[in-house]
């Protein structure tokens, strides 16, 4: 008899405690409900292409700063007009979908020589985890094609001559799935109206002069800035890279001609990737 009473008593006590906790604790913040509502509208695949850890984290970022949707849009959401409208309504801003179009760009031109033979796993991630790769440039494309495996559009192919992956902009729909795949962090989503791109990433790291590491690396010579007649190129002295203003660019290709390392390439929409 006592057993039954004690068990019932403890059960009731704990039940009361839970109810009490529900009353005493501060109510769920309004933001959380908004975040949950937006997270429901997001694709929910947690692909990580937006560089957040998942759709929930992205929804949190959206609630915190609605402009995130413009700067760093969810590519899957942009294709779903119905849900996009709902998200826009709850964030209070509108998105111009055509302006948001993005393409993947791999910021490496290849050309760094192999300094050792690699005979282990044939994935970029495996190589990058154990060593800094087998190329002279520790930041370059490893050319084992993790991004190719990730691309649902088959838009990435391997330039076997240079050992570097290249994106076919005609096929690329800017989903961004490849961005998270690259262990070297070479892939970036750039606006689809990008006219000239810098195919080098270690430019931002000061102590590695390009010409020692590879034939096509940026040497920070700033010739492109001087060559531009339309003030479309400015120099980012913090990252030591040129910045392109694609609205001012007339695609005269003077900067591409001026680049002594051929690091700059012209991306023209009609003809996908034109080097030189």
């Amino acid at each position: 008899m006592t057993t039954i009473l004690i068990l019932t008593g403890i059960g009731c006590l704990l039940g009361a405690l839970i109810i009490l906790a529900g009353k005493v604790l501060p109510p769920e913040s309004r933001d959380l409900k908004r975040v949950e509502r937006i997270a429901e509208l997001l694709p929910g695949m947690n692909c990580g292409a937006c560089s957040y850890s998942g759709c929930f984290a992205y929804a949190q970022a959206l609630v915190k700063n609605p402009k995130t949707l413009l700067d760093n849009p969810c590519m899957v959401l942009l294709q779903d007009t119905e849900k996009l409208k709902l998200v826009e309504a709850s964030l209070g801003l509108t998105v111009n979908v055509t302006m948001m179009e993005r393409k993947a760009c791999i910021h490496c031109g290849g050309g760094s020589e192999d300094i050792c033979q690699w005979a282990g796993t044939d994935t970029c991630k495996g190589v990058a985890q154990r060593h800094k790769g087998y190329k002279r440039c520790p930041f370059g494309c490893l050319g084992l094609g993790d991004c190719i495996m990730a691309c649902p559009q088959n838009a990435i192919y391997m330039n076997s001559e240079k050992g570097v992956a290249v994106v076919d902009w005609e096929k690329c729909n800017g989903c961004g799935l490849c961005v998270a795949e690259c262990p070297q962090k070479l892939i970036q989503l750039v606006p689809a109206n990008t006219k000239v791109a810098l195919l080098c990433t270690y430019a931002s790291i000061k102590n590695i002069p390009g010409r020692e590491k590879c034939d096509v690396g940026c040497t920070h010579c700033k010739k492109c800035v001087r060559a531009c007649e339309h003030d479309a190129i400015t120099w980012n002295s913090k990252r030591l890279t040129p910045i392109f203003d694609h609205n001012k660019c007339t695609l005269c290709l003077k900067c591409v001609e001026a680049c002594p390392q051929n690091t700059l390439i012209a991306c023209v929409k009609e003809k996908v990737l034109v080097t030189d």
């Binding site: 039940g15 405690l17 604790l25 769920e28």
Partner: peptide, 20 residues
Amino acid sequence: VVIASLVQIVEMAIKRTNVT
């Protein structure tokens, strides 16, 4: 029973105080 209800309370407390 105690563990189950404890987890319930802890979950509630965390959800309402620290969303991250």
